[in-house]
Amino acid sequence: MEETPDILCIGSVLWDVIGRSASHMRQGSDVPGHITRLPGGVALNIAMTFARFGLRPGLLSAVGRDREGNELTEACAQLGCETGYLYRSDDLPTDRYMAVEGANGLIAAIADAHTLERAGARILQPLLDGTLGSVEAPYNGPMALDGNLTETLLDEIARDPAFAAADLRIAPASPGKAERLMPFLRARRGVLYVNLEEAGLLCRTSFDSAPQAAARLVERGAARAVVTNGGDAACDATPEGIVAECPPEVLVTRVTGAGDTFMAAHIVAELGGAGRAEALDRALAAAATYVSGDIPS
């Protein structure tokens, strides 16, 4: 930890257990396929994409001191992520995520992020004790957050002076956790990265397109909203205007982690000086490459 990371990734760092089949599936399906265990979690997926683009991401999360936690921490370091800021729990197990994917997309998933939730504000200690920042000298770099943090903790981050100088980028982690991002609407802070369903949950309605959803999020208080809609146009909205771009057409071979790849690629593009339209286009291209299976998990 001799150098400050290029970006901080705060949220879930866990093992992804993914079952994939080439068959179409429905409830009760029992089909052949492959089961893999890979380092994952929204914060880590984002961090791994940063590392692939040559950045040095720092992880702030909770990982157990069990065997799975030791293996995960070692894997994160090998992937180019700074693990020295992780909160290592002696009495909580390492979190896990389990998903089943078929030829027709994600069938079901369960995220067990209870250790992260129970660790709470302890994962933020490096941003408060002077290691990375403090109330007197706030961290002023980019910071990616995910909705696996509790709404209480996200609310604290939205209002805490220790985070006032940070470039906050926030993703909900899943539709079931979308409403945890409400504190950032109330505080009018950060960039929200959501899909069409998540935007609808935050606005308590449904939308037909990403531009419609992004504009409504801004009306409800978002400082900036980036909304994706699968193979249809994505949108970046601010009070000053809207930019929309269509993703490339590709054969989809996987979906878990696609949104995280999109978000990271978008941030990398902007850190490199890209304008809003170019950043959106590059993020969509990176996500399309990921879901097509052309880059490794």
Rank of each mutant, 00 (worst) to 15 (best):
P5W: 01
I10E: 00
S23P: 06
I35H: 14
P39C: 06
A51S: 13
F53T: 04
G58L: 03
L60H: 06
V63A: 12
G64A: 07
G64V: 09
G69W: 04
G69Q: 07
N70D: 14
C76L: 12
Y87D: 05
L92H: 05
P93S: 03
A99F: 13
V100G: 10
E101A: 03
A108P: 11
I110M: 11
A113Q: 04
A121S: 14
I123N: 01
D129T: 09
G130W: 05
P138L: 09
P138E: 05
N140F: 11
N140H: 12
G147D: 05
T150Y: 01
E151L: 06
E156F: 11
I157T: 03
R159E: 04
A164W: 14
L168V: 09
R169I: 00
P172C: 14
S174A: 15
G176C: 07
P183H: 01
A187G: 12
T205L: 12
S209W: 11
A214M: 08
A215K: 05
L217V: 09
V218M: 07
R220F: 14
A222R: 05
R224W: 12
V226Q: 07
G231T: 04
G231N: 09
C235R: 01
V243F: 04
V243S: 14
E245S: 10
P247E: 00
V255I: 05
G272C: 11
A274C: 13
A279Q: 07
L280H: 00
L284Q: 11
A288W: 06
T289P: 01
